[in-house]
Structure formats: C-alpha cells, structure tokens
Amino acid sequence: MTEQPLSFGADSADAADAADAAGKYVYCIIRHDRVRDFGNVGIGGGRRVYTVQHEDLAAVVSDTPIVIYDPTRENVLAHEFVNETVMREFTVIPMSFGTVFRSEDDVSELLRSTYRAFTDVLDKMQDKIEFGLKVLWDRDKVVAKIEQENDEIRRLKDEITRNAASSTYFARMQLGRLVEGAMEEAGNRYVTDIHDALKAVAVASRSNKVIGDRMITNSAFLVDRSREKEFDDAVREISRKYEDVLTFKYTGPWPPYNFVNIKLKLERAN
C-alpha cells in the first residue's frame, strides 16, 4: 500500500493530480481479515475497489480525488453497485453516499476507533438484507372504489348529479369532505394490511417519509437471507390483492441502510 504525504492544497492543479490517488471513497464495512479486490467497479469511472484492513474488519474503498460527489443517478448507482457486489459474499454495514476520507490512514483510524460498534452491528446484521417497498395509489380508482362501497357517498353524489343546477355548494362540500375522510381511512387500511402481511416475514420494518402525493407508504424491511423467498412471495401476494388500486415498487436486496445507525464521530478534514 502506498501512502501519500498530505502535502497537497485543494486548489492548485498540480496538487489536484497529487491528490488524485490519495483520497478514499468508502462504500461499506465488512468483516474480513485479508486484502480483497472487488474489481474495477468503483465510483468515478470504474476505479479499483479494494479493502483497507484493521484486524478482522475491512473498509471497502476506491481511490478518489478529494471532491464532493453529486448524488447523480450515475454516481448513486456506482455506489449501490459496489455494495451489491460486496453483499453477495459479505454482511455489510453501508456508508452513506459520498463518504470520502483524505487518506488510507484516516480510514484505518475509522476502523480502529469504531471497532466495537462495527463489530456489534455486524453481528446483529449477520445474514440480514433490506428490501424497499413504495406503494402508490391511483386516486381516481380509489375514489371510484369508495363510491362503489360507501352508500352515503354514492347517494350524495347521485343527488348532486341529478340536481346539478340546484345542488348546493354545501352538498358538494360535504361530499368532498366525506370522500376525503373515506380516502384517508382506505389509505390507512391498505398500509396496515400491507405491513401486517410483511412484518410476519421480516425481522424489522421502518416507515420513511412518503414522496409526492400518490405514495401511501415508503417502507424498508429487514429480512433474514434464509427467508428472502418467503418475503418475495408475501410481497407478490399482497400486491396481487390490491392490484386494481395500488402500484407496488419493490426493490432490493439492499444493504441494511435503514437499520444501521452508528453515529460516526467524523469531522471535516481540510
């Protein structure tokens, strides 16, 4: 392993060249006590991905200039691709996108000083994988279904359509309110039902903030590798149950991004 002296300044072009190989982009932490090469799949155009060791822990890294990585799709996919590759063989603690250390020494220091926390989490996450599930609804279809099922709403709506000219502002407002309430109730019912069906097969679950106005749940599930197939089947079954009104976006397996919470004491290195 070569070690670069930390003598470069961030601004001059020469220094940037010198810095080119010194920074380390860290993808994840694994348990492995030998140097390991994962191939030229790293962020920034296929850089070599390899490990930096400390005892039986290893940080999976690639060389990088000291830069802030934009979360473009290309960059994010590169980050994820490395983690997916490593995950095929190892239990991983993923690092957040864009984590760059100044030098190999700094990475070793991270492993050394956080050794116990990493080891604990690796034990807990042993053979666990994460799946993501976003569920979106089709508003119009849900409204149609509600009108079909809810007598009060159907009656009020019929009344309004029949007496279009004379129907009052209040009748319309009341209808709007009833539909709104019924929608909320239906949404909660769907989400609860989906979660109940999947929790039974998962080790843990977490709900994240929904994105946009069509999403009713944005969840992550931690699943034991041995039950992956079972979880898949459960997702397929519940999505079939609601296929007329809901769209399921099911992704994974991921490293357990949503279930690892190690507060790293990091500071800016300038």
Binding site: G23, I66, I68, Y69, F97, G98, T99, V100, F101, R102, D106, E109, L110, R112, S113, T114, Y115, R116, L264, K265, L266, E267, R268, A269, N270
Partner: peptide, 19 residues
C-alpha cells in the same frame, strides 16, 4: 456552514475514542 459529503476523518478530540 460546512457541507455534508466533503472529506471527513474521525474526530480526534474525543476522550471516548479508545477501543
């Protein structure tokens, strides 16, 4: 204000740094 995503290192001034 500082930016997330720049180069980082383990904070060295903590007393609970020991393994």
């Amino acid at each position: 204000k500082g930016n997330a995503g720049g180069p980082v290192r383990v904070a060295r001034d903590r007393e609970d740094e020991s393994e």
